[in-house]
Design a binder for these strands. Structure first.
Length: 231
DNA sequence: GCGACAG
DNA sequence: ATCTTGTCGC
């Protein structure tokens, strides 16, 4: 792996091979802070959508007040899809667009929800951990399906959850029911936040749907639907 | 060697 | 993620 990538992890024009990217994750994972209970006035949701034939990735960030959950700012940005989708290396594909969108943001959120995992990852460095570290903002991984680890089926009611454990039995996240009788979400520490705090924050953002409100809005915005003017 | 595999 | 109609449920 090139030393440049380690010294300048914010540079996403890494022309890394998947193997080099994985090695970089193992190095950067040591910098991830896995505790914190940030005061939340603003919560953001981030999602990325692959544009049809353009080979571009469109990222959207929606910043909401907390706990009222009213949209206060939205920004989008395009970046080239310069890395393929490889399970475990999602941040190398979506990261550039995410960082570009953040540069346009005026209000800095106190915590960010990502559509993917945090430390519930083979090298403990999923999208939420990677972005949280680079931005130095508390982050939570909020994935729709499992990538790594195992857990029991949580109870069927909203708020029920079970631990997600790695091969050694260490806690790497929680499988959280965010609505009665719907598939659970996989919540994990991304950066500078405790698991229990993350679980409660995600739950507080789930008003009426399976997905927390910031991610729902970001999902729509990334697909092009305007939920609020970008400027 | 055979599965599993965020979006 | 994407390909895709009707259908079940609040």
């Amino acid at each position: 792996m090139s030393g440049d990538a380690v010294r300048n992890p914010g540079c996403h024009s890494w022309n890394l091979t998947p193997k080099e990217a994985a090695a970089l994750q193992s190095v950067l994972a040591k910098k991830v802070v896995t505790e914190g209970k940030p005061g939340i006035k603003l919560v953001a949701g981030v999602d990325v959508h692959p544009a049809k034939e353009t080979g571009m990735m469109q990222a959207a960030i929606c910043v909401l007040s907390y706990p009222a959950l009213e949209l206060v700012e939205q920004k989008t940005a395009l970046a080239e899809a310069s890395f393929p989708y490889v399970p475990g290396l999602l941040s190398f594909r979506e990261g550039p667009a995410v960082l570009a969108a953040f540069k346009r943001l005026k209000r800095q959120p106190d915590i960010i929800l990502f559509d993917g995992h945090g430390i519930a990852h083979p090298r403990r460095f999923g999208l939420a951990s990677h972005m949280g570290l680079l931005l130095d903002i508390p982050a939570i991984g909020c994935a729709k399906s499992r990538l790594y680890g195992s857990c029991g089926e949580p109870g069927l009611h909203k708020g029920n959850w079970s631990y997600l454990l790695d091969g050694r039995g260490d806690i790497i996240g929680g499988c959280l029911r965010t609505r009665d009788n719907v598939k659970p979400l996989y919540v994990s520490v991304g950066y500078k936040v405790n698991l229990d705090f993350a679980l409660n924050a995600v739950l507080a953002c789930c008003v009426k749907h399976r997905q927390p409100e910031p991610l729902r809005l970001a999902h729509r915005a990334a697909k092009g639907k305007t939920v609020l003017n970008d400027r």
